[in-house]
Structure formats: C-alpha cells, structure tokens
C-alpha cells in the first residue's frame, strides 16, 4: 500500500511512474476491491455479462475540471478509462507500454503516460487531457493556437501527447531554449519525424503563453 499512498499524495518518487509502481498499483488495487465503500457493477454495455472476472468499481475522477463518475476495473489504465469510458479519444494509444508518449495527460499539472497510470490511483487528483486545454468558450490554449499558426505536426497522432508534455513542461519553465524544450518533450515520439516543425510550433506556444 505504501507505494500507492505515495503515488496519491507524494511529491517525490511518486511523480515518476515506474514499472514497479505500476505493478504495485495493480496489486494494491486488487487488495482494496472488497473495501465497503465501493459497489460492484457489471458492464452496462454488454447486458450485464461480466465476462472477464475483473471487478469494476464506481469511482469519481476529476477530469478537465469536471467530476466524472466511472466504473473502472482494478487493472484499468487511465488511458483506457479516458478513451473507452469517458469518450475522451483525443488521448491516443500508440504503444500502450510507455514507449511513445501519445497518451500523455497532465495529472496535477505533471505530464504522465496515461497508458501506464492506473485509473484508481488518480482519484482526488486533477487530470487534464487535450480536450480540456481550450477554454470552455472554445478559445484555444496558447500552445494549441501556436500549433495551428505554425502548421505544427503532420499526421498528428502524437500531437495530443506532445502538446500535453509541452504544456506541463512550460508550466515549470516558461522561457526555455530550443534545447531545453526538446528535452522537455523527448519522452514523446513522432514517427512522421517532424521534429523541427514541432519544436518551432511549441517554441511559439511558449511565447504565446508568456504573453497571455
């Protein structure tokens, strides 16, 4: 339980999602399944057939500023919950194993690979996805606007992840050099290999953020 607790509350090691943390999270998630405060629900989408023997629990998540109630399995990743339970398909799955960064979201303003974060571990934390960056009126976030203005990215399958990483990084370091920002988003892979144009647009995003 200690790793789970640390993941929920700590500032230090918990911010680095390690394989060890991830696996421990699954084990811990299993251990609390019987806790009285959670009720079991079968999958409503499939007529109550509870096929895979994986218990779902109703939990509440703070996603893009809204409280979202969702049935999540104990081993369910945040990327899965966002995409398949909450309809937030802007978070992409390129590898599902923490290799490509397409699924990057912000958790309490820190970029995480959502494919490698268990959903139940983010209760009580603020999750922001690409859909939550623009203002409710539809005004794009400065980094989004910069990408539009600079024609950043090609196929854009990696784009959500890059933008979330950049926004997270720029909150910590609003005035980076090209080299620093490249390091900031180096956990994200672009197979169109459009890196120069991506960096151009994200640097412009940094400038827009400073001006905003």
């Amino acid at each position: 339980m200690s790793d789970l607790t640390e993941l929920k509350t700590g500032e230090g090691r918990a911010k680095e999602i390690t394989r060890r943390n991830f696996i421990l999270g699954v084990i811990a998630g299993g251990a609390v399944v019987s806790a009285a405060s959670y009720r079991f629900l079968s999958s409503t989408a499939h007529g109550g057939v509870f096929a895979s023997d994986a218990g779902e629990r109703l939990i509440t998540l703070n996603v893009n500023g809204q409280q979202r109630r969702v049935d999540a399995m104990r081993q369910e990743t945040l990327a899965w919950t966002l995409r398949y339970k909450l309809g937030l398909t802007g978070t992409k799955l390129g590898c599902d194993r923490a290799e490509c960064g397409s699924c990057t979201v912000l958790i309490d303003d820190v970029p995480y690979y959502a494919c490698s974060v268990l959903t139940h571990t983010v209760r009580g934390r603020k999750v922001v996805t690409i859909e939550g960056l623009a203002s409710p009126s539809g005004k794009l976030h400065p980094v989004q606007q910069a990408v539009v203005d600079a024609q950043g990215f090609q196929c854009a399958f990696c784009m959500s992840g890059f933008i979330m990483s950049a926004v997270g990084y720029l909150k910590q370091n609003p005035n980076p050099t090209r080299e620093q920002l490249a390091h900031g988003v180096s956990g994200n892979l672009c197979r169109c290999q459009d890196y120069t144009k991506i960096l151009d647009s994200l640097m412009k995003g940094a400038e827009y953020m400073r001006r905003a």
């Binding site: 995409r83 398909t89 802007g90 799955l93 690409i130 794009l140 990408v147 539009v148 854009a156």
Partner: peptide, 15 residues
Amino acid sequence: DLVAKVTGRAKYAED
C-alpha cells in the same frame, strides 16, 4: 483539419 487535431476532436480509426 488542424483545429480538430489540436483539440483532440479529430477521429482516427480507434476513436
């Protein structure tokens, strides 16, 4: 197509 891409509204096959 860019605004749909930057806001996550662009739908790829798995979406």
